[in-house]
Simulated scan of single mutants.
Amino acid sequence: MHRLFRPKLNCGFPEVLVSILLPVFNASRHLPLALGSLQLQSHDELEIIAIDDGSTDGSAGILRRAAASDTRIRVVERENRGLIHTLNEGLDLARGDFIARMDADDIAYRERISTQLAAFAAEPGLAMCGTHFDTIVPRGAALPQSKPDVTESRELRVLSRFCTILRHPTVMFRRSAIPDGELRYDPAYPCAEDFELFNRIAEICPVRQLEAPLLAYRLHPDSVSVTRAATLRATHVRFLEENLARHYPEAAGTGFTALAAQVTPDAISAAADLLRRLDALLPHQPPEDRRAFTIGQRVTLYFLYAWLVDLQEFSAARHFVEASGKQGMFRRSERAVLGLVGSQPALARGLWSALVARGEIIGALQNRKLTSVVPDIGAIERQAATLTMGAPPAVSSEGA
């Protein structure tokens, strides 16, 4: 038996097995904390399915040590096949009706699994439940606390047509509440597989986001959102256009997805046209959908704007903001900088760099210490330390 025992909480399903899917790829730096946080969950009936997707660092050794000391950890080691294949493989291996996601660089809070199980117990038809989260930035600090914009099923369904509604590593599914064949990641949507899956489930099943942060989500330069940003953006806009055609056809067909290939005046005009069409549709939405629809518009605006700014396409960003009529959605300082793009581009770029630096300084002053954010961080660190010592024992290449 595994060596970690804790009293079980009254979560509604005290004896139920929860399968946790943990894809691993070159995650040795943060993997011990992630594993340690899962091993110390207050809900004890777990299987942790850790699939090493062809790592070339020390991840495999860490997983072997963890499995040797805790029989709840099942390790699969193989060549690299990519995240979507790995997630679907994990779904096939999962024995529990409840299936939770976790990333190898994040930290689950001790009550995460118990709290999500309690939400499923309170709502028997619930199919998918995410949680709010704290965000870890480099140098071990956490961003200021926030609250989720949307938590209820109907609003989440509307918002899921515009963006990914839940942070992927916080999600738990109840397989028996989801129609056969639907709990599957689609390889046609690389880097946005969660956007597509969550939308598909939200359209046909009850879903929920819990307001309490139950996970620390780590931002770092090696994350997919950074290393595969171009693929993520292209897939995102393609799926967004598919949803517009399906649910809001009057807003579809502008051609804004051409931005994925090249930033051109026509593509920028098409993106602005999309925002104007969504504005025209807002009054015609059911009253109970309008708040989520408005949030979806705002997310789309900022997504496209941030895309252009990240590419240093300041002139295009200015045209997009002005043509969409959304100047009022941006800070005065940003509008002033964009206003200089045409006449003094060098000055505009310098001022933009200064704005970014100022924001980073202010943000750093507002950040919280990780020790004050993550419950039981000391116990998690001590558990993690046991996974980084000694030689890795041998395990089967196909896991336990």
Rank of each mutant, 00 (worst) to 15 (best):
residue 1 M to C: 12
residue 3 R to E: 12
residue 4 L to H: 11
residue 5 F to M: 10
residue 5 F to C: 13
residue 7 P to F: 00
residue 7 P to H: 11
residue 9 L to N: 06
residue 9 L to P: 00
residue 12 G to E: 01
residue 13 F to M: 06
residue 15 E to F: 11
residue 19 S to D: 09
residue 21 L to V: 05
residue 23 P to F: 04
residue 25 F to Q: 09
residue 25 F to P: 14
residue 31 L to D: 09
residue 31 L to Q: 07
residue 32 P to V: 15
residue 37 S to H: 06
residue 46 L to G: 08
residue 50 A to S: 04
residue 52 D to C: 10
residue 55 S to T: 06
residue 58 G to V: 09
residue 62 I to C: 09
residue 67 A to F: 08
residue 69 S to L: 10
residue 76 V to T: 09
residue 84 I to W: 07
residue 85 H to P: 00
residue 86 T to N: 08
residue 86 T to M: 10
residue 92 D to S: 15
residue 101 R to I: 11
residue 102 M to N: 10
residue 103 D to S: 13
residue 106 D to Y: 07
residue 106 D to I: 03
residue 108 A to L: 03
residue 119 A to I: 08
residue 121 A to C: 08
residue 122 A to Q: 10
residue 124 P to L: 12
residue 124 P to W: 14
residue 127 A to Y: 01
residue 127 A to Q: 03
residue 133 F to N: 10
residue 136 I to M: 15
residue 136 I to A: 15
residue 137 V to K: 01
residue 142 A to V: 03
residue 142 A to R: 01
residue 144 P to Y: 00
residue 145 Q to C: 07
residue 146 S to H: 05
residue 148 P to M: 08
residue 151 T to Y: 00
residue 153 S to E: 12
residue 155 E to F: 03
residue 155 E to V: 00
residue 160 S to Q: 03
residue 160 S to P: 07
residue 165 I to A: 08
residue 168 H to K: 01
residue 169 P to S: 14
residue 171 V to Q: 04
residue 181 G to T: 11
residue 185 Y to E: 08
residue 186 D to H: 04
residue 198 F to L: 13
residue 202 A to S: 11
residue 203 E to F: 05
residue 208 R to W: 05
residue 211 E to L: 11
residue 211 E to H: 03
residue 216 A to K: 00
residue 217 Y to F: 14
residue 218 R to D: 15
residue 225 S to P: 03
residue 230 A to Y: 02
residue 230 A to R: 10
residue 232 L to A: 12
residue 235 T to G: 03
residue 236 H to F: 15
residue 237 V to I: 14
residue 239 F to Q: 04
residue 241 E to V: 06
residue 242 E to K: 14
residue 246 R to A: 15
residue 246 R to P: 03
residue 250 E to D: 04
residue 251 A to D: 07
residue 251 A to P: 09
residue 253 G to C: 04
residue 257 T to D: 13
residue 261 A to G: 11
residue 261 A to S: 12
residue 267 A to G: 01
residue 269 S to Y: 01
residue 274 L to K: 09
residue 276 R to M: 08
residue 280 A to C: 04
residue 281 L to A: 13
residue 291 R to Q: 12
residue 292 A to M: 13
residue 293 F to L: 14
residue 299 V to A: 01
residue 300 T to D: 02
residue 302 Y to M: 12
residue 302 Y to V: 11
residue 303 F to S: 14
residue 305 Y to E: 05
residue 307 W to T: 06
residue 309 V to C: 12
residue 310 D to A: 15
residue 311 L to M: 10
residue 313 E to D: 13
residue 315 S to Y: 01
residue 321 V to L: 07
residue 323 A to S: 12
residue 325 G to V: 12
residue 328 G to P: 03
residue 330 F to A: 13
residue 332 R to Y: 08
residue 332 R to I: 13
residue 336 A to Q: 05
residue 337 V to L: 11
residue 343 S to G: 02
residue 346 A to R: 14
residue 351 L to T: 15
residue 354 A to Y: 09
residue 358 R to M: 02
residue 359 G to M: 00
residue 367 N to E: 14
residue 371 T to N: 15
residue 371 T to K: 07
residue 376 D to I: 00
residue 379 A to T: 00
residue 380 I to Y: 10
residue 381 E to G: 07
residue 385 A to N: 08
residue 386 T to G: 04
residue 393 P to C: 05
residue 394 A to L: 07
residue 397 S to E: 11
residue 399 G to E: 04
residue 400 A to C: 04
